[in-house]
Simulated scan of single mutants.
Amino acid sequence: MTLSDIERHYGFTYPPLYKQLEHDGMLNVGEYGPAWYQQVYPTLKDRPTLLLHADDFELLSVTAVAQALDELADPDDYRQIDPALRFIPFAQTGAGDHYCFFASGQQDADLPVVLLWHDQEEAQHLARNLADFLFLMLLQSMADQDTYNEVSDEEFREQLEKTMGTHARYLTARQAEVLQALLARDIIDYDVALPKGRTEAHRGLLTDMELASLRAELIAYDKYDDCFAYGAAG
């Protein structure tokens, strides 16, 4: 099955950038399974496919996309998604939430990207289009070193540099310039403010406040972080 098969069968047109990513081999992550990390990941890590090193992001194969589309459209699916809302999954989190193109929200050439929560009956706006989503995810990757899994400073920086090596061509000149400047920084520790006066320790090349500022400057989206109900009775 190919992207063209998905388009024909489900009456949907992928963004040109996504088709370019497919043409360039950036979507070729193989089929996930028990041995994927040991057998497939080593063949990809030096020339990362789409957001390979991003936190909590698993690109779906075309076969998995078709399966997810059928599940979302199933009237007996537990999510009970409103048939008037069209979501086209292309990736998922470890918890099973889906990153989707929101076909019902298309504005001219812009096809928004949303996160479809599987247990909250809501979808969350992330970006105006795929290009902006890509830049947002790269910013977030630079802001958040995976200290939970004890990723070293050297490995963190190496992953980012290799990611830029395969992703820079899909960015605007200004976006690529900003990310390259961030890569030249020293890694810092910073605190993220949480409700009720709490804080959470983070480590990366920029703070959450800097990330928010760059997002507003370079990929402004008035619906960013807004959520909406997707249930048929919502």
Score class of each variant (00 low, 15 high):
Pro195Gln: 13
Gln159Arg: 15
Arg169Gln: 14
Gln180Met: 08
Ser152Met: 01
Thr166Asn: 06
Ile188Gly: 07
Leu136Gln: 06
Thr163Ala: 02
Asp153Glu: 10
His167Gln: 11
Pro195Asn: 09
Leu138Thr: 12
Leu171Glu: 07
Leu194Gly: 08
Gln159Thr: 13
Glu177Met: 03
Ala181Phe: 06
Thr166Tyr: 12
Tyr190Leu: 03
Glu155Asp: 08
Ile188Phe: 07
Asp153Thr: 01
Glu161Val: 10
Glu154His: 04
Tyr170Arg: 00
Tyr190Phe: 14
Asp189Thr: 13
Arg174Met: 09
Glu158His: 07
Ala173Gly: 02
Asn149Ala: 07
Thr163Arg: 01
Leu138Ser: 00
Ile188Arg: 13
Gln159Asp: 10
Gln180Lys: 13
Val151Trp: 08
Arg169Asn: 04
Thr199Gln: 08
Ile187Val: 13
Glu155Arg: 12
Ile187Glu: 00
Met142Asn: 05
His167Ala: 13
Ser152Glu: 01
Asp153Met: 04
Arg185Asp: 08
Gly165Phe: 11
Ala143Thr: 05
Gln159Val: 11
Gly197Asp: 14
Glu161Gln: 14
Thr163Ser: 11
Gly197Asn: 10
Leu160Met: 10
Ala193Asp: 15
His167Val: 07
Asp153Pro: 02
Phe135Lys: 00
Lys162Tyr: 11
Glu177Phe: 09
Arg169Ser: 12
Arg185Asn: 13
Glu158Lys: 11
Glu150Lys: 10
Asp146Pro: 05
Val192Phe: 06
Arg198Phe: 14
Glu177Thr: 09
Ser152Tyr: 09
Val192Gln: 07
Ala176Gln: 14
Asp191Tyr: 15
Val151Pro: 04
Arg157Gly: 01
Ser152Cys: 05
Gln140Glu: 11
Ala173Lys: 07
Asp153Ser: 07
Gln159Leu: 06
Ser141Lys: 08
Leu183Ile: 03
Ala168Trp: 01
Gln140Arg: 13
Asp186Pro: 10
Gln159Asn: 14
Glu155Tyr: 03
Gly165Asp: 08
Asp186Trp: 09
Val192Tyr: 04
Pro195Gly: 07
Val192Cys: 04
Lys196Arg: 14
His167Lys: 00
Gly197Arg: 04
Thr199Asp: 09
Arg174Pro: 12
Leu160Pro: 00
Glu177Ala: 10
Asp191Leu: 14
Pro195Val: 15
Leu194Asn: 09
Ala143Asp: 06
Tyr190Ser: 00
Leu183Ser: 10
Ile188Ala: 07
Leu183His: 08
Gln159Ile: 12
Tyr170Leu: 03
Ala184Asp: 15
Met164Arg: 01
Glu150Pro: 01
Gln180Phe: 05
Ala184Met: 10
Ala168Glu: 11
Thr147Tyr: 08
Met164Gly: 07
Glu155His: 05
Lys162Glu: 10
Lys162Pro: 00
Ala193Arg: 14
Met142Tyr: 05
Met164Ile: 03
Asp146Val: 02
Gln145Phe: 02
Glu158Thr: 03
Arg157Gln: 04
Pro195Arg: 07
Val178Tyr: 12
Met142Ala: 12
Asp191Glu: 15
Asp144Tyr: 08
Ser152Trp: 04
Gly197Met: 12
Gln175His: 14
Gln140Ile: 05
Gln175Tyr: 04
Gln140Pro: 01
Gln159Gly: 02
Asp189Ile: 02
Met164Lys: 02
Pro195Thr: 15
Val192Gly: 01
Glu158Trp: 11
Arg169Asp: 13
Glu155Ala: 13
Tyr190Gly: 02
Leu136Val: 00
Tyr170Pro: 04
Ala193Lys: 14
His167Pro: 01
Phe135Pro: 06
Thr199Asn: 03
Gln175Ser: 04
Glu158Val: 02
